[in-house]
Design a protein around this nucleic acid. Structure first.
Lengths: 148, 148
DNA sequence: TATTGACCTAAAGTTAGGTTTAGGTATTAG
DNA sequence: CTAATACCTAAACCTAACTTTAGGTCAATA
């Protein structure tokens, strides 16, 4: 199966200009062209793009993704580097998930805090501590006092 | 307890120039100054900065973080908006974690693939499929054929 | 008193990862 | 044959989030 750039754009939800940008940056070294210079994508190009999306999700910079594809092109002599790249990315991604989980816990606490504050009509809820909200409350109280 | 910008920078591992940038962008509306115009941070400023770090982890843009602090300053009339902000961010973060987990699964597969490829000295490992590696193998094979 | 180190501002510069624009080519439907 | 649509390149532009630079102030120390 082959696809035009427009079809790939629809399939993978990547804008046409982004696909061309990736190509220009050397991230799609295997894309063929017609005699009329038009890009022809096949299923393995789709695999490449899915790998790009996967690595981009983990915040790998495009230049590192390109490095990976360059190593792929270079052949079996670069297997160790490629292994290393994924081993490092695995570590980074696990850390990133842990950080996000931590952030999510704090956000859940805030959700709960504001859910109750919404019910009560005030952030000054006895028994529910929120340093940040308290700071603003105190600041506003000082203002009010100063105003008098 | 109060802290200088340098102490805060060390404590939270945020560069001094970034702290000043946040202040300039209005993300630290509550930081006091000495008579000599020097910033004096207190523990609630530390809380603010931790909240900024938390939200930044979840990829919230600084302008949205500023919006949150602006709502905090505005007082109880913005509780519903603040609740909504955290509810939305909770959803986004859960999705982001799921995406990352998915990417991690693929990366783990790649690690395993390259661990074995490293052992065997080739990516052409029978029984272990890797579309991407195969593409490069085939391409190189075509090259070799064309070269003859 | 002089120097050192930490602080200040404003403004320019940087980087990644695109998008937009301008001008042109290729393919297909009527 | 021609008009519409999809494709092409090169180069300029854009945005977020910083960082760097240049020129100056403040505070403690020798």
């Amino acid at each position: 199966m082959t696809y035009s750039i427009g079809e790939i754009s629809e399939m993978l939800n990547i804008s046409i200009s982004t696909l061309r940008y990736y190509d220009k940056e050397g991230l799609l070294p295997l894309v063929n062209r017609t005699s009329g210079n038009i890009r022809v994508f096949d299923d393995t190009d789709v695999e490449c793009l899915k790998m790009i999306e996967c690595l981009k999700t983990t915040d790998m910079p495009l230049k590192d993704i390109k490095q990976f594809f360059d190593w792929c092109e270079a052949g079996d002599s670069t297997i160790a580097q490629r292994y290393e790249l994924f081993a490092v990315q695995k570590e980074k991604t696990e850390k990133q998930i842990a950080l996000l989980q931590n952030a999510l816990d704090r956000i859940n606490y805030k959700c709960e805090f504001y859910r109750i504050a919404k019910e009560k009509g005030t952030t000054n809820v006895p028994g529910l501590r929120d340093e940040l909200a308290m700071k603003f409350l105190n600041r506003n109280a000082e203002h009010d006092t100063a105003d008098k």
